[in-house]
Design a protein around this nucleic acid. Structure first.
Length: 219
DNA sequence: TTGTGTTTTATTGCCTCC
DNA sequence: GGAGGCAATAAAACACAA
């Protein structure tokens, strides 16, 4: 039944070549179509007078049409008739072939545009993750610096206060010097003591920052 | 061989332009 | 109002795995 000629796979190869050109060249008569209410026609086949069976075009016909399509995507009637007589086809068949070919071409372009957009999107997501990690890293560094600052301050106040008697302050235990840490506003807020408590402060600050960040970005 | 998915050819209905 | 374009769809032809 098949009319010989190249296999459909070969034809496909032909189609898929050299399609990378103009993106978005003809965006259809846009949004007008949105209101179209699509009808459905009755299935044919039961209809009168032998619908001619569909015939695949032969390889050389396809080649010729393809060349013509690459040359010019639209088909004015003179060219249509010429092509039809040249290939032994009905002019209507030629017109239909061009119509379908344009549709395939457009699909291909849309696919390519999608692939490009997707690549760009993935790259942006990757970059975003990278930047976030960088921000977190820098903030942790600053936090450590701040922690160091606090430690220095607390050590300073404890050594300065060591000149007075412990009894005056009512502190007798060796750990009482650390208790002055609680004079620092941040520390006092939590009523914490010691280095472990400083770590808690750091963690608290970091967590609250992360919460803010998450809220801000809606994560 | 057959069921199923894909591609190609053809039709229909709507829209735009001249 | 007719020609031609397009989107949506039907259906034949084909490919291919099971």
């Amino acid at each position: 039944m098949s009319e010989g000629g190249g296999s459909p796979v070969e034809e496909k190869m032909l189609f898929s070549s050299s399609l990378a050109s103009e993106l978005c060249s003809q965006m259809p008569q846009a949004s007008v179509g949105e209101t179209r209410t699509r009808r459905r026609r009755k299935a044919k086949g039961d209809g009168a007078g032998g619908d001619a069976k569909k015939k695949r075009l032969r390889g050389e016909q396809l080649k010729f049409l393809e060349m013509s399509f690459q040359d010019e995507r639209k088909l004015e009637s003179g060219r249509k008739v010429h092509l039809a007589t040249e290939l032994g086809l009905d002019p209507k068949q030629v017109a239909v072939w061009f119509q379908n070919r344009r549709a395939r071409h457009k699909n291909k372009q849309v696919e390519e545009a999608y692939a490009k957009l997707k690549m760009a999107h993935d790259a942006v997501v990757f970059e975003k993750c990278h930047l976030e990690k960088e921000v977190v890293f820098k903030l942790k560094g600053k936090l450590l610096e701040a922690e160091e600052e606090i430690r220095k301050l607390s050590l300073g106040t404890s050594t300065a206060g060591a000149s007075g008697s412990n009894a005056e302050r009512g502190g007798s235990s060796p750990s009482s010097s650390l208790s002055t840490v609680s004079h620092h506003p941040l520390v006092g807020e939590f009523g914490v003591e010691g280095e472990a408590d400083l770590m808690n402060i750091q963690e608290y600050n970091f967590n609250s920052y992360m919460m803010e960040w998450a809220n801000f970005y809606g994560v």
